[in-house]
Design a protein around this nucleic acid. Structure first.
Length: 577
RNA sequence: GGUUCGGUAGCUCAGUUGGAUAGAGCAUCAGCCUUCUAAGCUGAGGGUCAUUGGUUCGAAUCCAAUCCGGAUCACCA
C-alpha cells in the first residue's frame, strides 16, 4: 500500500469490503471518498447515497455494515467511524499518520513523480523589445513558470521557451524617436535601465505622432488618413523597409537598442526567477512558414485566390476563412507561428506544446491548432493554449498610452519595500545581518506578489489593487515564506517535531494531525494542477496549508525556541525559494 | 450580430468527478491590550451562488433560455 494516498487506500479497502459483504463487484466510481468537513468527527468520508439503490439498503444500515467491516479488516488504518445520513466518516489512526510522516520526512522527492519520458515545451513571457515588462507580463511569467515546474514535478521533461517579438513597425517607432530626439543619449549616460530607456522613446514617438495627426486634422484631413500621412509614421514605415533590406546603419541601431532592452530584461527576469532553456527571436523566425504554405497548397489544405493571396477555409469547423499569405507573397502572423511550431517539433521532438498567451488570442490559437492538425504536424492535437485574462487595476484597464500601466520593476520594488517596512515594524529580525535581511525581504515581497497573481483562476480576468494586495496581515507573513518553499522541508520540520519531541505517548496533537492530513493531499493536488494546467489550484492549496502551518508555527515549540533557532529557521526558509 | 469566457458576502477571490449548515482574506462591529495606543488575539454580523425553468434522493456545480460584463470576429503582430 506504499505510495498510495489515504484516499486511494480507502477506495481500495472499501471496494474489497463491499464485495465480501454483498457478493458483487464494485468500482471506485460506485461511491465517493472525500475529506471530512471540519464540523464532523473523522478524517475521511465515504458517500453512500449512490449505493443505496442497487443494494436496497438504507444509508444508515449500509454505513454501519461497511464501517464495521473496514475497521475489522484494517484496524491499523481506521480507528473508528460514525454514520450521519449517507455519510460514513472514518478516523485515521495516529500510528498510520506517524508512519506516513516517518516514511516521508526525509524524502527530498516528496510529492514528485517518476520521470515518464514525455517532453513538453512551455512557451511563455513573449516580451516586445520596445517597452518594459508590466504587470500583465508578470501574470504570464508566473503562470508559465508554475506550470512548467508543476509538470516537472509530475515527471515530464520540460523545456521552457520564449519568443521575443523583436521586429516590426513598433520596434521601428522607438528607433525613429531615438534618432530624432535622443541626441545620442544612452542608458549609461542617463543612468536608466535599458528597457525603460527604450520604452521612453516609444512613448515619445506616440506623443509626437499625436501632435502631427492633430495638426493634419486641423487642416481637414481624416483621422485615419492623417495617421498614415504623419511624417514620423512614414519615417517609421521607411525604416521597416530598410530593416527588411538589411541596411547596415538600421540593423546596427536595431541591434544596439535591442541590446539595451535585453540588459534591462535580464535584470527583471533574474529578479522574478524566470529563465528559458531556449529563446526564439522573431527576427529569425518571421520568414518561417513559407515552406508550410507550399506544403499546404500541395496537400490541398490551402487554396489560392485570383489575386495571388493564399487562404484556408475553416468554415466547416465553425470558423471563417483565414489568410495565410498576402498577395505580395509575404507571410502573416499565423503562418510564422505554424512555422515555429513545426520547428519546435523538429528540434525537440516534443509530445506536447503549451502556449501561455492572453485570452485576446483565443481565436488565433484555435486557428493555429486547426491548421497544424490539417497539415498533419506531429502531435498537433497536443497544442494547448493556456489562456489567461487581463490584469486590471481598480481604476480600470491598463493603457500604455494613458500612462496607467503598472511597471513590473516598480511594483516589485514596492512589494519588497513594503515587506521590509512591515518586518521591521514587527521587529522579529533584530539579529539578522544586512545580507540576510535583503534575502528575506525579497522572498516576502515576491512571494506575496506571486501568490496574488496566481491564486486567481487563469481564465478569469482579475483586479490587482496594489494598495490592498501588499498584505502582510496575520498568517500571510509565514504563508508567503512558505509559498515557494519546498513542501518536503515543511514536512521534515513536522517530522522532527513529532519524533524528537520529548512526549512519552505517540499520540498526535490535533494540529499535527491536521497538518499531516493536509500534506497528504499534496501529490494529488500537484497532479490535478498538471492535468488541468492550472497553478491556481496549487496556490490556493498552499494557502490552506500555510494557515494550518501557521497555527502550528505559533502554538508549537518553534514559537518557544530561542532567537538563534528562530533565525536559523527563517534563513532556511528564505533560502528555499 | 456570430463565436467564446465569465457573473458566489461591502471588496478581492476559493469552492474537487453533483453531497452534509456555501468558505477565506480584507473591510465593518463588539471585546481583549496600551510608554511608542496593534498589519496582534477572541468573537459577531454579513448570501435570492445573475434570473427562470429542467434533470434527481441531492444542484453554486450538469442541461436550456434570458439578462449583464469581457475577449474576439484584419492582407496588425
Amino acid at each position: 500500500m506504499k505510495g498510495m494516498t489515504i484516499i486511494q487506500m480507502l477506495q481500495k479497502a472499501a471496494i474489497e469490503s463491499l464485495q465480501s459483504l454483498y457478493n458483487q463487484p464494485f468500482t471506485e466510481k460506485d461511491f465517493q471518498v472525500s475529506q471530512t468537513k471540519p464540523e464532523f468527527e473523522g478524517n475521511y468520508t465515504v458517500v453512500l447515497f449512490s449505493l443505496t439503490k442497487s443494494l436496497k439498503k438504507s444509508p444508515e444500515a449500509l454505513g454501519k455494515e461497511l464501517g464495521d467491516e473496514l475497521i475489522k479488516n484494517h484496524s491499523h488504518i481506521f480507528s473508528k467511524y460514525n454514520v450521519i445520513k449517507g455519510f460514513l466518516n472514518l478516523t485515521i489512526t495516529d500510528d498510520h499518520l506517524l508512519d506516513l510522516l516517518n516514511r516521508n520526512y526525509n524524502d527530498v522527492c516528496f510529492g514528485k513523480h517518476k520521470i515518464n519520458g514525455k517532453k513538453i515545451m512551455v512557451e511563455y513571457s513573449s516580451p516586445n523589445t520596445n517597452k518594459p515588462i508590466h504587470l500583465g507580463h508578470l501574470r504570464n511569467n508566473f503562470l508559465g513558470w508554475s506550470v512548467a515546474e508543476i509538470l516537472k514535478a509530475n515527471g515530464y521533461d520540460v523545456i521552457k521557451s520564449c519568443i521575443v517579438n523583436d521586429r516590426g513597425i513598433h520596434i521601428c517607432k522607438s528607433m525613429i524617436a531615438w534618432q530624432k530626439f535622443a541626441n545620442g543619449a544612452t542608458p549609461q549616460t542617463t543612468n536608466t535601465k535599458g528597457d525603460h530607456f527604450v520604452g521612453e522613446y516609444y512613448v515619445k514617438f506616440n506623443g509626437e505622432l499625436k501632435k502631427e495627426v492633430d495638426e493634419l486634422k486641423n487642416k481637414g484631413t481624416d483621422e485615419e488618413v492623417a495617421e498614415k500621412q504623419a511624417p514620423i509614421m512614414q519615417q517609421a514605415q521607411a525604416m521597416l523597409l530598410d530593416w527588411e533590406e538589411g541596411k547596415p546603419e538600421v540593423i546596427d541601431l536595431w541591434k544596439k537598442m535591442n541590446g539595451w532592452v535585453y540588459e534591462g530584461f535580464d535584470v527583471t527576469y533574474k529578479r522574478i526567477g524566470s529563465y528559458f532553456d531556449i529563446t526564439y527571436y522573431e527576427s529569425n523566425t518571421y520568414l518561417l512558414g513559407k515552406d508550410i504554405v507550399k506544403e499546404g497548397l500541395a496537400k490541398g489544405v490551402f487554396f489560392k485566390e485570383e489575386d495571388g493571396s493564399i487562404w484556408i477555409d475553416l468554415t466547416e469547423d465553425g470558423l471563417d476563412k483565414k489568410i495565410v499569405q498576402r498577395r505580395d507573397g509575404t507571410s502573416v502572423y499565423i503562418t510564422q507561428d505554424i512555422g515555429l511550431a513545426k520547428q519546435k517539433y523538429e528540434e525537440y521532438k516534443i509530445d506536447k506544446s503549451i502556449y501561455v498567451i492572453g485570452d485576446e488570442q483565443n481565436y488565433h490559437m484555435k486557428v493555429l491548432k486547426l491548421i497544424a492538425e490539417k497539415l498533419d504536424l506531429p502531435n498537433a492535437k497536443n497544442i494547448y493554449h493556456l489562456s489567461y485574462g487581463m490584469v486590471e487595476l481598480p481604476s480600470g484597464k491598463m493603457k500604455s498610452r494613458e500612462g496607467t500601466v503598472v511597471d513590473a520593476d516598480e511594483i516589485i520594488d514596492e512589494m519588497i519595500s513594503t515587506a521590509k517596512h512591515h518586518t521591521e515594524e514587527l521587529g522579529k529580525v533584530k539579529d539578522f545581518n544586512e545580507h540576510e535581511l535583503d534575502d528575506l525581504y525579497e522572498t516576502l515581497g515576491l512571494g506575496a506578489m506571486k501568490f496574488y497573481l496566481l491564486r486567481v483562476d487563469p481564465k478569469k480576468r482579475m483586479v490587482f489593487n496594489p494598495e490592498e494586495s501588499i498584505d502582510f496581515h496575520g498568517f500571510t507573513g509565514p504563508f508567503v515564506q512558505y509559498t515557494y518553499a519546498r513542501i518536503q522541508s515543511v514536512l521534515r520540520k513536522v517530522g522532527q517535531q513529532s519524533t524528537v519531541d520529548s512526549r512519552q505517548s505517540t499520540e498526535l496533537l490535533p494540529l499535527e494531525k491536521e497538518l499531516i492530513l493536509t500534506l497528504e493531499q499534496y501529490s494529488s493536488i500537484i497532479e490535478q494542477a498538471a492535468n488541468e494546467l492550472n497553478p491556481s489550484v496549487v496556490a490556493n492549496y498552499v494557502f490552506d496549508l500555510a494557515k494550518t502551518f501557521n497555527s502550528f508555527y505559533t502554538e508549537h515549540s518553534i514559537a518557544n525556541a530561542d532567537s538563534e533557532e528562530k533565525k536559523q529557521l527563517r534563513l532556511q526558509i528564505a533560502s528555499m525559494t
